[in-house]
Simulated scan of single mutants.
Amino acid sequence: MKHLIIITVLFVTGILSAQSSYDKGMEKAFELWKNNQWDEAEQLFERIAAAEPNAWLPNYYIAQMNSLKSWEEKDADKLKAQLEKAQNFLNDAMAIEKYNADLLVMQAQVLTNWVAFDGMTYGMKYSAKISDLYEKAFAMAPENPMVVLARAEWNMGSAKYFGQDTKPFCKDVEKAIELFANFKPETAFYPNWGQKHAESVLKSCND
């Protein structure tokens, strides 16, 4: 379960001719993140979120960063703190943006972190909910490659866990790769991750 979801960090390129403080802050946060300055990037996202109460994206990225960090965290207390922080900021994002497939995917990923941390405790509690979140996200945005990829990986992981064939879901990974080819995020800061990982997953399908 731990390696079910691997996320490629979004790096925003291009400088807008007339930047707002929000634009400048977001670009700086992504630059810090790209340079592996996770703490500084997360703190900047937090400042942007506080200054821009109607912007869901800073909250989304704080949730994503804490979700990502939890995969490699061995200290249970730190991991729980990270996932609780992720959930709190995700709740804030969802309060701003009520119908958003990217947020549903992020919610599924945070819950998957809990399952990966303690499958005995959280597997029964969250597995059905995770599947439901992916189905809702797919119904909302069937052409979003991140939705298609994350849903496919969850289904593959579930099939593997129950000793079932994962091959039927490889076609969904192929579909995600096709969608990535023409995918254009709504803005420069919108989620745009997973293309290279999708190609890696497909390669493992064909091995």
Rank of each mutant, 00 (worst) to 15 (best):
V110L: 07
L90T: 06
N88P: 01
L79E: 15
E84A: 09
L103P: 08
E84L: 06
D102E: 11
A86M: 03
T112N: 14
T112L: 13
N88H: 11
L104M: 09
D92T: 08
A86Q: 05
V110A: 04
N88E: 10
Y99W: 06
I96E: 13
L83E: 02
D102F: 10
L83D: 04
L79Q: 10
K98Q: 14
L83C: 06
I96T: 07
W114Y: 15
K80V: 09
A108G: 15
L103F: 11
L90N: 05
N88C: 00
A86H: 13
A101M: 03
Q87R: 12
M106C: 02
D102V: 00
E97C: 02
L90K: 03
Q107C: 01
K80Y: 15
F89D: 10
E84D: 11
I96F: 15
I96P: 15
L79A: 08
Q107P: 00
L83Y: 09
K98T: 12
L104A: 01
A81R: 10
L111E: 09
E84F: 10
K80A: 07
K98Y: 07
N88A: 11
A93L: 03
A93F: 14
D92A: 11
Q107G: 02
N91H: 04
K98P: 12
D92Q: 15
N91F: 05
Y99M: 02
T112F: 12
A93I: 02
V110S: 03
A93K: 02
